[in-house]
């Protein structure tokens, strides 16, 4: 593409800035559903800033290369807009509409400008399309990425939330497991359990798997690893909350829980733990 046609878009952006902004805003406002999540003033501010930056960026040449350094600020600004819209709960198409709705007013301007010259009109229109497609895709990409970050953060929070280590009695810890046990969770569970054993000097840890929906060979292996690690630290483990279904699965799978003490309910496990630490009498006295 020649420099002459390259210069058309920045020129139009510059000379028609105010009209473009108005028409673009109208496009955007009709595209959004009523009760929109963003105010008109905010939208106007964003649109104005974007037009400004786009005009500066296109002036440096490379109209269709949005990865060029001259587009740095456009990319930053667009990224911020997409990210904030992603967090505000906009849909991907609503987010991309921000850029794509500028097409119609801009194309109209290009046509009035280059009305007579069909060849140049086609070339300029094509490069404008290319530019906006790229910008649109970029918006969607950033949007996607920001949503993925949200999901990742929530996963992390969920992981931390769902693995509490509770002190039940002197020297007795309980670990109520909720949800599926995968390698990542086992690692965190193991670490927090061992840390608590060191802090509290516990002799017994009760791992309650009432909240674990299914137990397969891998889950059982993870459980055994946790038990072994606790044993290496000098704490005995009791696995409790084994439902009949899970007991059947464990036997059918041929999983060997070895020397691990297993109990049906947390209450049974607690009773056993008190016996093992020789605290049973003391613990039951107030109730008698």
């Amino acid at each position: 593409m020649s420099a002459a046609t390259d210069a058309v878009i920045p020129r139009i952006l510059k000379t028609n800035e105010a009209e473009l902004l108005d028409e673009w805003l109208k496009e955007q406002l009709t595209a959004f559903r009523p009760g929109s999540k963003i105010s008109e003033t905010e939208l106007r501010g964003q649109s104005k800033e974007f037009l400004n930056l786009l005009q500066q960026a296109t002036q440096a040449g490379h109209v269709t290369d949005i990865q060029a350094p001259s587009f740095g600020r456009v990319r930053d600004m667009l990224g911020d807009v997409s990210r904030s819209r992603g967090l505000q709960g906009f849909s991907p198409s609503e987010t991309a509409t921000f850029v794509l709705s500028l097409k119609r007013p801009l194309f109209a301007r290009i046509r009035t400008e280059l009305g007579g010259d069909a060849d140049t009109l086609a070339t300029v229109t094509w490069s404008a399309t290319e530019l906006f497609d790229k910008l649109g895709l970029y918006t969607t990409e950033v949007y996607q990425k920001s949503r993925e970050e949200v999901i990742k953060r929530q996963q992390q929070e969920l992981l931390e939330l769902s693995t509490p280590v509770v002190k039940l009695w002197d020297g007795i810890l309980a670990l109520p497991m909720i949800g599926t046990l995968d390698s990542a969770r086992t690692q965190i569970v193991m670490e927090s359990l061992l840390q608590r054993i060191v802090e509290t000097g516990a002799d017994i840890a009760i791992i309650d798997i009432t909240g674990v929906p299914t137990v397969d060979t891998l889950t059982a292996q993870h459980l055994l690893k946790t038990v072994t690690a606790a044993r290496l630290m000098g704490a005995d483990c009791i696995i409790s909350g084994i439902r009949p279904q899970i007991a059947q699965t464990i036997v059918h799978l041929g999983v060997d829980l070895g020397a691990v003490i297993t109990k049906a309910t947390l209450a049974d496990a607690f009773r056993r733990a008190l016996e093992m630490t020789g605290q049973r009498q003391r613990a039951l006295k107030p109730r008698a």
């Binding site: 670490e191 690893k225 690690a229 290496l232």
Partner: peptide, 9 residues
Amino acid sequence: PAVAITLVE
């Protein structure tokens, strides 16, 4: 704890 985890792994 780290040593215990390593040994188990």
